[in-house]
């Protein structure tokens, strides 16, 4: 079929204003294509929202709503309740989307409420590891030592001083039935996890690593390559957790040193210029090693 028409099946249409090489909008298309057409989608304020809904142009081919920055999951809760009341909850699935800031920072309260109340919703956190829409400020999912516009590298700083908040563990503490991490580097894996999640009743959490060429500082062509390196170094472990038990993990055929991932990105380049930087790299390697051990990746 040598035909443009197949692109019309995408739930996210082209013509949106996401940057060239954007990992986020790519991730959203993969998620929603896997979810099918019988869905209602909520989205938090952020890059995904502003780049796709500049009036009069909407990129969404599925019913979609944006309300505020922090309430994507609460709005989704209301939609799910309405579908239940209307007797449509079995047919129509609700997907709630947000970036890392909207999920792990400002939207944390609403998300915890959605998990705890047991709504039948798939929540997808698109993790590009900073507030990209406002100009690359750090969020609580920004990795250790990343230089951002509010945690800049400087004479007295190696960048972001804290580790990524462990969102999957926080989700797990709510005893929800399905938690998974995924990466744009593995599109088929995303499809598999979304389809599986939507078969499960109750709240589901999917955290999807989505590189940002502009915010992380790499060539637009490298979005997939960088995402893959994050997985291959053990810095972004991919796993599924069902009912509190880890049921799958992406095994690494060959574990790469963290430098392979970090050196490709401007946000970490300051780690490669001094002796002190080497110590920082050792700390980051230790984090990767810990992940590899914890999830049994090697």
């Amino acid at each position: 079929m040598f035909d443009k028409e197949m692109t019309e099946k995408n739930s996210v249409a082209p013509g949106h204003n996401a940057c060239s090489g954007c990992g986020l909008v790519l991730a959203a298309r993969l998620v929603l294509n896997a979810a099918g057409k019988d869905i209602i989608v909520t989205t938090a304020t952020g890059c995904l929202e502003v780049t796709t809904t500049n009036y009069p142009h909407s990129a969404w081919r599925v019913p979609w709503i944006h309300s505020l920055f922090e309430n994507s999951s609460a709005v989704a809760s209301g939609i799910e309740a309405a579908l239940k009341a209307q007797g449509k909850a079995d047919k129509i699935k609700v997907i709630s989307q947000g970036g890392d800031g909207a999920t792990a920072d400002i939207g944390m309260m609403c998300l915890s409420g959605m998990f705890e109340r047991g709504h039948d919703i798939l929540y997808v956190c698109y993790d590009n590891e900073a507030y990209m829409n406002t100009g690359i400020q750090r969020s609580s999912l920004t990795p250790f030592d990343a230089s951002t516009s509010t945690t800049p590298f400087g004479k007295y700083s190696f960048g972001n001083p804290t580790n990524k908040k462990d969102m999957p563990a926080i989700a797990a503490a709510h005893h929800i039935p399905y938690i998974a991490t995924a990466s744009v580097a593995y599109p088929q894996d995303i499809e598999k996890k979304v389809k599986k999640a939507l078969q499960i009743k109750g709240p589901k959490y999917l955290q999807l690593h989505a590189p940002c060429p502009l915010g992380w500082g790499f060539k637009t062509a490298y979005s997939i390559k960088i995402a893959k390196l994050a997985v291959q170094t053990g810095l972004y472990p991919l796993f599924e957790m069902e009912n509190g038990v880890i049921t799958s993990r992406k095994k690494l055929a060959r574990v790469l040193p963290v430098e392979a991932y970090l050196k490709e990105q401007t946000r970490f380049k300051h780690l490669f210029v001094s002796e002190d930087g080497k110590k920082e790299l050792e700390r980051i390697q230790a984090m990767a090693n810990e992940n590899i051990k914890k999830f049994g990746l090697a």
């Binding site: 309300s67 922090e70 609460a74 989704a76 809760s77 209301g78 939609i79 309405a82 309260m109 409420g113």
Partner: peptide, 18 residues
């Protein structure tokens, strides 16, 4: 819900869903 903020957000979603 866990707050009035969510209460208002929940009814927003419900109303948007008809």
């Amino acid at each position: 819900v866990e707050s009035e903020f969510s209460a208002a957000s929940v009814i927003l979603g419900a109303c948007a869903a008809g």
